[in-house]
Write a protein that binds this DNA or RNA. Structure first.
Lengths: 129, 129
DNA sequence: CTCTGCAGTTACGATTTGGTACCTACTTGA
DNA sequence: TCAAGTAGGTACCAAATCGTAACTGCAGAG
């Protein structure tokens, strides 16, 4: 996958190189649950593992761990480990993570609009039938 | 996956219902190539199948077909079939598809910024070493 | 007369993915 | 003494995904 910002048909580096800026960011967000986790971290603030897992509802511990590690590796979230007993691990968005706020907000707007439109369309459909 | 727009912890419908507006839209964009296809359709205007395939570079005909059908089903793109010989099939964004413009743009901005930052960081790293 | 391109579809097969179950080590509470 | 909760790690297995190759029917080019 390669997305150019230029309007002039980027020659598409077949080597799979990260020549395109969107590439990286999309791979990050595309994973299952990923956007949802970021969204929750943003909406409810820093959270501990168990809290987050309960909130996401349906995700397995394995998935959550993997996603969190990936996000951490990308510098989108921060992992604070307190070696108490029992251990406390708190996850929070980094400044970089917060740079997605606007995108998520825009996406949310569109999503809400579409949902409303679809609901209206269904109602009309029912009336017609 | 369920994302609430409310700040008040949506009770998370376990039935997998589409109670959350982000849900639907994310599933749509999350598929591989999907965003890239939409991006290309936006950047280069309506395109025929072969054109698009050449532009995306790396995608298989099967994938492209499948993605296009999904996007069509979601009402994001329009499929114009001309039964000439050889047949011409042109794909274009619908008004609904264009509603993603802003999101894609925002995403692009972030992507470019991160890429620049990372490049700068790598340069500093090299200097330090 | 065969080759190519159009816009796909289909079958097959390998890889990846994601879930389930079970394990850690330690403390608190019953 | 036994169970539960903390934050995971590991192994295994079924299912979904994605690529490859081969097929469609027809026309124009060589």
């Amino acid at each position: 996958m390669t997305i150019s910002t230029e309007e002039t048909a980027a020659p598409a580096p077949q080597e799979g190189g990260a020549a395109c800026p969107m590439d990286y960011i999309l791979r990050m967000l595309m994973g299952p649950w990923t956007t949802y986790i970021v969204y929750n971290l943003r909406a409810f603030g820093p959270q501990r593992f168990g809290e987050l897992k309960r909130r996401v509802a349906g995700i397995s511990a394995k998935m959550l761990t993997e996603r969190l590690r990936t996000l951490e590796g990308a510098g989108l979230i921060k992992r604070d480990y307190e070696a108490t007993i029992p251990p406390k691990v708190t996850y929070s968005l980094t400044p970089r993570g917060h740079e997605l706020d606007e995108v998520l907000e825009k996406l949310g707007e569109v999503a809400v609009r579409w949902q409303a439109e679809d609901r209206a369309a269904r109602k009309t459909e029912l009336k017609a039938a």
